[in-house]
Design a binder for these strands. Structure first.
Length: 253
DNA sequence: ATGGCTACGGAGCGTAGA
């Protein structure tokens, strides 16, 4: 067991990943877990009810797991090598948000609704979700807090492969709400790391036709110890990939 | 390329994803 006095510095590594079905992605998940061995995984779109979640794989890898799933769609999880405390999932009814305290930091796994089409009911649900999410993050403003997930919004024009695209995930109202989260003091650390999602259709990945939909938002205290971050594009090249790449965040503790 | 893929549920093809 390492003690803080034994080492000059320690790295805490987090990966957030929209897996698009944890059961369909188990083989890829094990590869990423082995290659990167993160302390914490934040997962989205596990697409499985809790009783069918493949817990044993995670426990074999030494992770404690908190899940909020539902049948067939949505579903979020937090996996940590540290104890999971203060687990809460009551932010919304659907399985789209899970928070915990683990390894000395607060973390949240977030799966923002897709919104389907601008000015539809699902779109307004998405806008409402993003609005409420900022208020939720503000509860952690003075903590070491990291929210990772699929925010389903490309924050800026350069986060979409089509320069003038203004459709779903890139509309002004969606972008303004994400901007409000940044302006509330939560930094989007992977702005210059490229796309995180490529459509299965039209062979989007081969042409690098992507969107940057997955993000980490760090409170000021988290950003002060932020060390390094990236998009793990190689995961999109595996057999039977998720349409999202995992994203990585490292803290120097 | 508003059909073109992938996964789900449930046993056909409709729904969702973004």
């Amino acid at each position: 067991m390492l003690h803080k006095s034994d080492v000059v510095s320690t790295i805490m590594r987090l990966i957030s990943w929209n897996v698009n079905s944890i059961r369909a992605r188990m083989e890829n998940f094990l590869k990423i877990a082995k290659e990167y061995a993160p302390d914490i995984f934040l997962l989205q779109e596990t697409r499985v009810e809790d009783s069918l979640f493949p817990l044993e794989y995670f426990e074999d890898l030494g992770y404690n797991v908190a899940i909020k799933g539902q049948k067939g769609r949505n579903g979020v999880a937090i996996c940590s090598r540290h104890m999971l405390e203060e687990v809460k999932s009551d932010f919304c009814e659907e399985a789209r948000y899970l928070e915990a305290f683990s390894g000395g930091i607060f973390i949240a796994s977030v799966y923002v609704p897709n919104g389907q089409e601008i000015d539809t009911a699902p779109y307004y649900y998405k806008l409402d979700f993003l609005q409420k999410l900022k208020d939720k993050f503000l509860d952690f403003k003075d903590e070491i807090f990291i929210a990772g997930g699929d925010f389903n919004v490309a924050p800026r024009a350069e986060d979409v492969y089509i320069a003038d695209y203004k459709g779903i995930a890139a509309s002004l109202r969606e972008r303004e709400l994400l901007k409000a989260i940044r302006e509330a003091g939560f930094q989007d650390i992977l702005e210059d790391k490229g796309y995180t999602w490529w459509d299965y259709r039209h062979r989007g990945f081969l042409q690098d036709h992507g969107f940057r939909l997955d993000q980490f938002y760090l409170s000021e205290k988290a950003h002060n110890i932020f060390n390094n971050g990236d998009v793990i594009r190689s995961a999109r090249k595996l057999e039977r990939p998720s349409d999202h790449a995992p994203i990585l965040c490292e803290l120097g503790i």
